[in-house]
Design a protein around this nucleic acid. Structure first.
Lengths: 359, 359
DNA sequence: CGCTTCTATGAATGCGTATGCATTGTTTGC
DNA sequence: GCAAACAATGCATACGCATTCATAGAAGCG
């Protein structure tokens, strides 16, 4: 059998069921005017023929594909894998599917947008990637809602959902300060990414407020990956004259983990005894026994839900909202990489976790 | 502006360019009969209008969507994230896109298949999930090629690509034996999954060949996840009378890592001094300093390429091949979790890696 | 019982593009 | 210099379904 088999269409089903093609269409369209008896006849015939409505054809008239595009920049970061998984599950529950576009980290997503326009997707979620304002306005003109996940485009009026990254950076700063640190190193990611910028900004702001000197806050670039942070740390500490900071903030967990391994396994340092460390995201990997990483948890489920809400997939006739920017607070998760100060007063909203791997 | 804006169609472009709609279509169809001059006129007009051909409409006549469905069972295993990424990149290079279907690990994919039929995908890749033979034959009847990735369906004639899992299990067995182990524990995954079964079978076969007693090979179930293996190990060794095996084979890397962390951080054992350990897959996480996991590397790129070849996306008129089963040999990667025997003769095809995290 | 109001149905049309066919103009071959 | 082959183009139609419109029958109402 070859692939040129003519497919079974609603006409075939109609013929078998002894009704019109319209009736078949209605049988598969919830809420349409059809007698229950007729519907059953149709469904029966459809089952006999293994008929499944062709959504490609139907979306031609309905102008809805039930496909949402997800642009992903960095699958090397487990956080975004989790994000993908969450989006996919939520959308599947709604009878929608995810069309994936992977983009090289840091690269422009413009080309991806051009491709997804062809598919007439109902909406676009953009994570971990750059996008020009020209593209957002093209999407807007074509009536395709686009929501930025955990980033925003300066100077654009595209809507987005994100963690309060600056606020999270401040939480980490406070934890370090409470534990007595006075000199710091930040390992930042993509310098063009607002996520990295904002976390670093909040972190530095808080430190300066507490009187830390600017010269006691160093920064190196870890290219948003485990490997990048690992080698950045080795490079930085390769200069033996460099004074060692008391605390390191990895702008995301995967980089904090890379830094941690370099510090422990290549530089022979103990954490938190010699050096304290924190990340951001709260990926499952950071909870594991070798890491026990103190971090800020991003409320993924809530962020995903709000992002999907902003897409207004169920009310396509609504005008597309613009310029919405919805920051959601993160929460400090205190684990083993920052020593607990004596008689420490835990700030509200902090979670302390010991060994979550144990059941 | 609402989403009901009438879209710009090939007719609009045709009007602006002063040609017929057919000419517009041909301008965007490589290899069609159109004068270069006309094509330029059309492309110019298209650019002015931000026109992008509607592939939904075109696939209605061409019967090709340039969409490939990827059914994923377990995104908690980084190996499959890597697989997803590789498929996505390859397909994007070909101008095709990936439609994601996530399925609960161990659950049937039948429902996913029903959904993807609606989208008239050009092909299906199934990883890490169960599938009934009824579904494979429905796909077959509808002319949709389906390729199983790293699994096969007993009793079905669906084609697939996989690592030589049994052979890989044998490699691990040999490495353990060479290092002097004589008692063993296997941590297996989904009992219905052929991948886990085959690896375990090859492992046991080889051990028995070398005179290991059946009673010296134990098995526990780790549900294919880090957490599953972690707690399975704690449960198993909670029985203090249990004699400790000399070697543990985690049927995949993520489980081996979970086992390793439980052994080290909860049971206070040293690896490889007290116990040797190996995994399977060679995920990047297992290469990292805290793990240095000895494993069998699956040749992902080759497997993905062959899987895509088997889909014959470029020759849709060919009859769908059935029953092809293409095992590809894995390669032993010897790292730190198995002690190197004195004067050991490395088998052909073994790679020895010291500290790959260092640049 | 005659009227209106509803419900269920089918015929016909449109969604945006690809393509077979016919037509025109151009080039080739002898 | 004329027939034949060919390249470029437009017209018309098909792809599979949703939906509007018209119609026929059923039910409600006084």
């Amino acid at each position: 059998m070859t692939r040129n088999t003519t497919r079974t269409t609603s006409f075939d089903v109609a013929a078998l069921a002894g009704v019109s093609q319209s009736a078949v269409s209605r049988a598969f369209t919830p809420g349409s005017s059809i007698a229950e008896e007729t519907r059953q006849k149709v469904l029966e015939a459809a089952k006999k023929l293994n008929y499944v409505p062709n959504s490609i054809a139907s979306s031609l008239t309905t102008k809805r594909t039930n496909i949402v595009a997800l642009i992903l920049g960095n699958l090397g970061n487990p956080f975004y894998v989790h994000v993908l998984h969450t989006f996919s599950q939520r959308l599947q529950e709604q009878g929608r599917q995810v069309l994936i576009f992977t983009v090289d980290p840091g690269a422009e997503s413009d080309e991806a947008i051009l491709h997804l326009l062809k598919y007439q997707v109902d909406g676009v979620i953009l994570t971990a990637a750059q996008l020009s304002t020209r593209m957002t306005s093209i999407c807007h003109d074509r009536g395709i809602p686009i929501v930025l996940f955990n980033r925003y485009i300066p100077g654009s009026d595209a809507s987005g959902v994100r963690c309060d990254n600056a606020g999270g950076g401040r939480l980490i700063a406070e934890a370090f300060l409470a534990a007595g640190a006075r000199s710091f190193l930040m390992i930042t990611g993509d310098p063009k990414g607002t996520t990295s910028q904002d976390r670093a900004r909040g972190f530095v702001e808080r430190l300066l407020e507490e009187g830390v000197r600017r010269s006691d806050i160093a920064e190196i670039e870890g290219s948003s990956s485990y490997e990048g942070a690992y080698s950045a740390v080795l490079r930085h500490f390769g200069d033996k004259n460099r004074t060692r900071p008391e605390a390191i903030f990895g702008i995301n967990d995967i980089m904090a983990m890379g830094a941690m391994d370099a510090l422990r396994f290549r530089l022979g340092l103990k954490i938190p005894e010699d050096l304290m460390l924190a990340g951001f995201d709260d990926i499952p990997e950071g909870r594991r026994a070798p890491y026990q990483l103190t971090t800020v948890r991003q409320p993924i489920n809530q962020m995903v839900d709000e992002a999907l809400d902003m897409l207004h997939l169920d009310e396509p006739s609504l005008p597309i909202e613009r310029g919405l920017d919805h920051p959601i607070a993160g929460r400090l998760i205190w684990r083993g990489t920052i020593p607990v100060p004596p008689a420490y007063q835990w700030p509200a909203g902090t979670t302390r976790e010991a060994e979550p791997n144990a059941e």
